[in-house]
Structures are given as structure tokens and as C-alpha cells.
Design a protein around this nucleic acid. Structure first.
Lengths: 353, 353
DNA sequence: TATTAGCACTCCTCGTTATGGAGTGCTAGT
DNA sequence: ACTAGCACTCCATAACGAGGAGTGCTAATA
């Protein structure tokens, strides 16, 4: 036991880094060598610990706010910590129960599921929950319905296999009799069911052209109608946020400017969508720490997220947004647990019929 | 000009109070007697001003943070200030133009109108915009549609005269053939159009019972269907919030705890709904200052709101939530301006057909 | 009688200074 | 390879003081 080989030294450093980060996450104050000696059994003196800490700092895992302060983790430090945690965790039993209970209620429609999920993530994590819904244009069409509202207005309702329901009001240039609507509606439903929504628009136009010979006037008008209805404006993904009030717990040193920036990101759906879509590029769990989110406003934030599936297809992301100093272990377990359940529910949803 | 009668003295005090609040609103710092002498022409010395200020303080309009500081307005002071402003203001020309331009776009559907309005209020005021939509159950039915999704699921779409569109998925115990759906749908539409949604539910059940003799099986099932669909859970009013990030500009002295409370109010729709419904009790413009909102979390906040109408009926509220120290004049003009335009648009909306 | 000049007083703000302590890096000894 | 010991750094906190804005009061004035 006299001469330790380098491998063992490395291993010890790892353990040390873990302990330090664990402690820092819970206290929020830079951790000194003495604290580690007192609370964690390394069987080493504070001086030795200090030497190791110097190493870890040189390697970029730790940082000192000033010369005579303890150390706190850098993004790289957190990164190491998180990677070392990835396998071990599983969801706390009572959390799991809570989740199942909440989902037992209203989950018939996809939107309800998304909303519930964002709230759940928030309330269990005490941070902010975010969910990116499946893109409508990548879903398959289940049902398309035209509903006459007045003589010149028509409500178009689109339902996807995944349970997404969207509607849009279209104003016609000339009135279109309700009977024609039924005909058009039926015809289109027959031919387009199960088709990806991204293709529906062109297909519709095609079918309408074919049908024009039979019911000329009706279908001529229908063309304009459908062009408007499937205008790709809002066919993208929707984003749901729960627990914005927890954003206040984020900044390490209550920085107002940073908070405002954050809030802006959360408010502007397109910004947040971008962020989440980035997290969707790689399947499964993703942890982005501080500057790893390459987005100015997210410098002080960590994002623990996971893609979720419907059947075999990855369709969206859900996750937690919180301070870099978060309990990664619990958060990861939470996100994974919720993902698993959402996967189940979604897959069940897609199986009607 | 020797002896001033009490009326004149009172008048002078009013002017003084106005000037002081005007100044305080713009600077945010307690205002001293000297400042008033320098910047506002009262033709009085600072000593006299001080005497008057003492009076105003005794009467509860002003408060001193500490003995040797200037004065700032109390809620009562603001209240006086606002009341004295109520008649005079009108909307700045370029603001009005902005508003009209924004509304020129997407306003076919009520929900779009609500969202646009909340954003508009926020962006023009630099505070937080809130809108309470008309209650669905008080609107008249324009159209009811049943859409088969699978063999056991039915999508019920309800459209009100006011342009509100809501949908809900209902699961049937036994399958219901699509043909029956059409029959039911048509029958109900004929009989229920124009009826208040609050009555639709009972009426439906009645009609179904009558019809049961003819299409017994279909309508028996329909009963359950409609009972679920019109379950009064979500028939209430919806609330729209724009510009949450501006909440950060609220607290007089950046108080984190207060902010969190505020954010909670804004997040929990039912809380915010309560607050707004209170503002709806009296028709027209309403300004609630600080503690006048009898709600703990709104102590530091002012709410400038106005009810809006559809035709002749008052149906909702819209307004601005900001710090007590706000430019009431501009805010009132803004809220009134937006209300006027929303009234127009809504009334137009209700006139299809 | 209403107003004002003058003055002593209050109390905040801001910068300076001192002090205690936590934590470090280094050196020399085991 | 580890550790005891020590001088040093730098933060946090409190204490102190000067400056200044603003007050309330009194006595003089128009």
C-alpha cells in the first residue's frame, strides 16, 4: 500500500471531484479542503486534498472565485459529474406514484398530455418544465373535417393519428353550400387518411383537380379553401412551459438582467422551440450544462431533457430547465421516468382504431 | 390677493399633489420640497411647500420613508391622482396606428384576437398585458359538430356566436356508427342553434330523449356522449397573458419574494381569473392601485383594466398589470383605446351569417 | 394671517478602515 | 507519498465618519 499507481490516483481524484460537486450542489458555497476532510472519509489530510484540488483546477474541472476561497465546479466539472451518474439512478418510488396518479386523469387528447407533463416536471423538480409537442406536419392524418360556420366561413379541423387537434377558420370568397362541404369532406377523408400531414396539402390539391370534373364549382372553391387551411404557418411544434415562477430560483447570484433574458426565451415560443429542437437531435437523454447550451441567455442554466417516442418514432422532447447547480441525479431520474410514462401513453394513444 | 379662502388653498394642495406624483412617477425617488420649487412654478418657497406637504401627509396622500427624506405617494395619493386624470386623456396617435396595423392581420378567430390583444397591451405599455376571454357558457351556440375519430372516440367541436371554438374528445362505451353521428349532429344543430351554451346541455338531453323513440340505440348512446362533452369543467373563461418578462420591472425595490408571488398569480390561471372577474363587476374602466386589489400578492401592483363588449353585452376584461408607479395617464388611454378597437372587432365578429 | 428665511437636526448614502476567519500555497519534515 | 505548520490572501462584516438632502420649527415679514 505504499506506492500508488497512477490509475488509483486518478480514481481518487474522481471520487474527490464527485464529493465536492455533491457538496456544492447542496450548499451553494465554494467548498474548501477542510470541509471535505470533515464530511467525507478520504483518510487524507487537508493538505493532500488541496494538492489534488490544484490538479483538478488545472484540468479545468474546478474554479476558485478568488485566491483564498474554496472551489466550485465549472461546466466541465458538472459535465464529468453528470456523466458519472448516468447509469446509476432510478426514480424515487413516491415520485413515480405521483406521476401515475396525475396522468390517470385527463389524457385523451395530446394537448392535455403535454400540459400535464410540463406541470408535472415542474412540480416534482421545483424547476421549470418544458415540453415540445410532436410536429403536426410529421404526423399522419387521422381525420379532416370541414364545418360550415356562416355562409362564407368554414372551420377546418384536422386530427392527427397522434391525437393532435388543430383548427382554423377560413373565409371563402364566394359562399359554398354545406352539402358540397360534406361531399368534399368525405371524399378527402377517404383518400387522405393515414397520409403524412406534410404531404396532405399537395395531395389535396391534386385530388381536388381530379374531382373538379364531377362537381366543378364546389371543388374549384375548395382549392382556395384548402390552400389557406394548410398554409404551413402553424403546422410546426408547440411548446408547453410549466412552473415559470421557478425561474426565480435560478441565478447563482440573483442577477436581474440574466433573469429577464431567460424569461424572454421562455416567453418567445420560437426561441424556446429552437433550443429544444437542438436537444432533439440526439435520441434519448441529454444534459446541457451552462455554456453547452450555445445560447447567450442560457449561460447560467442547465437543461435536462429526453426525447420521447410514439411507437418507434421519436416525436418530441421534454425536460427540465434549472440552475446549473441542480441535483442532477434526481433530475435525470425524473426526466427518464416521465419520458417512459409519456412513451407508454402516447403509444397507446396512437393505437385507436 | 391677501387672504386666501380655504377653497383656493385646497385647490393649490391638489395641484401640488399632482405635481409631486407626476415627478415621482418619472424619477422613482421620494420628492423633496426643493425639487418642487425648482421644477414646478408654484411661486411659493420651499418652506411653504413643506407646510402643505405636512398637511397632505396627515391626510394620508403621502408618506415619508424616513424622517429626513422626501415624500412619495400612498395608494390613496395615487388614487386621487388617477381620479383627477380620468377625463382628460386620449390615445397617442402613433400608438393608435400601431394597434390598428397589428389587428389587421389574423383576427378571424376569437382566440387569435385575445392573444394579439394581450401582446399589444404588453408591448405598448412595457408592462404585462392580460385579457379575460368571454365565458363560453354565456355565449350562444353557433354550431355543434360530432366527428368520429375511431370506433369509440368522438371529437365534439363547439363554436359559439362570439367565435370561440372549443373541442373535446369523448370516449364511448360502445361504438357508435358514423351515420348516426351525422343524424344526431344535424338534429341537434337545427334545434339548438342560437341557444346559450349554459342551457345547451340540458336541452340536448331533453331532445335526445324525445328522439330516442325513432333511433333508439344511437340516441341512447348519444346521451352519455353529450353529458361528457358538456361537462362544465372547462366552459369558463380563459385568460391570456402577454409580456411576463415585464413583471421584473415591477417592485419598487427589487424584492424577489414579491416577484415570485406575482409570477404565481400570473401562472395559475384560476387565480388570475378571479382577479380579473373582480374587475369585471363594474362596467368600463377600472384602476386598482396596490392594496385596492385585495389580494396579498398584488400589494405592489396596479391594474388598469376595462371591460369590453360584444354588441351590447359586456363579455370580458382586458388590461395592464404593472408597478404602482406607472404612467397612469398613458396607460388609461392605452387601455381605453384598445378596448374601443376590440369592441369593434368583436361586434363585427358576431355578425356573420 | 399667510408666507418665508434661517437654522438645527435627522438619517441616509457612500466611502474608508479595521478585524476575524476561512482557505490557500508552499516548504520542510516524516 | 503524505502531512504538519505557517505565512499570506482576500472576503465578509462591522464600525466610523463626512457629506448632503430634506425636514420641522421659530421668528420675522408683507
Amino acid at each position: 500500500m505504499r506506492t500508488l499507481n497512477p490509475a488509483t490516483t486518478e480514481n481518487r481524484k474522481r471520487k474527490l471531484l464527485q464529493a465536492l460537486i455533491y457538496h456544492y450542489v447542496r450548499t451553494g458555497k465554494p467548498v474548501g479542503s477542510q470541509v471535505i476532510v470533515d464530511k467525507y472519509n478520504f483518510g487524507l489530510s487537508s493538505a493532500t486534498i488541496r494538492n489534488l484540488l490544484v490538479d483538478l483546477e488545472k484540468e479545468g474541472y474546478l474554479i476558485q472565485p478568488h485566491t483564498s476561497a474554496g472551489r466550485s465546479p465549472t461546466d466541465k466539472g458538472y459535465r464529468f459529474y453528470v456523466d458519472s451518474l448516468l447509469e446509476v439512478q432510478s426514480l424515487a418510488a413516491n415520485d413515480e406514484e405521483k406521476i401515475r396518479k396525475e396522468y390517470a386523469m385527463r389524457t385523451k387528447e395530446l394537448e392535455d398530455l403535454m400540459i400535464s407533463t410540463s406541470h408535472m416536471l415542474s412540480s416534482l423538480s421545483k424547476h421549470t418544465g418544458v415540453v415540445l409537442s410532436p410536429r403536426l406536419d410529421k404526423s399522419l392524418l387521422r381525420r379532416l373535417q370541414l364545418i360550415p360556420l356562416g355562409t362564407e366561413q368554414i372551420l377546418v379541423v384536422v386530427v392527427s393519428q397522434s391525437g393532435l387537434i388543430r383548427h382554423r377558420v377560413v373565409t371563402m370568397k364566394r359562399p359554398l353550400p354545406p352539402e358540397s362541404l360534406t361531399v368534399i369532406s368525405d371524399t378527402l377523408n377517404d383518400r387522405l387518411q393515414g397520409m403524412p400531414l406534410s404531404e396532405v396539402r399537395t395531395q389535396i390539391l391534386h385530388h381536388i383537380e381530379v374531382a373538379q370534373r364531377e362537381h366543378i364549382e364546389a371543388f374549384a372553391l375548395a382549392k382556395d379553401l384548402m390552400r389557406d387551411a394548410f398554409d404551413l404557418g402553424d403546422v410546426g411544434a408547440e411548446v408547453y412551459v410549466g412552473g415559470r415562477e421557478n425561474l426565480f430560483r435560478i441565478p447563482e447570484d440573483n442577477d436581474f438582467g440574466q433573469l429577464t433574458g431567460l424569461m424572454k426565451i421562455v416567453e418567445q415560443k420560437n426561441l424556446l422551440t429552437q433550443v429544444l429542437e437542438r436537444a432533439m437531435k440526439k435520441e434519448g437523454l441529454s444534459v446541457k450544462i451552462g455554456a453547452e447550451n450555445n445560447q447567450q441567455e442560457l449561460r447560467g442554466v442547465s437543461l435536462v431533457s429526453s426525447t420521447y417516442k410514439m411507437g418507434d418514432a421519436t416525436v418530441g422532447v421534454l425536460g427540465i430547465m434549472g440552475p446549473r447547480r441542480m441535483e442532477y441525479g434526481r433530475m435525470i431520474a425524473l426526466v427518464e421516468g416521465v419520458t417512459k410514462i409519456v412513451n407508454q401513453m402516447l403509444t397507446k394513444m396512437g393505437q385507436y382504431e
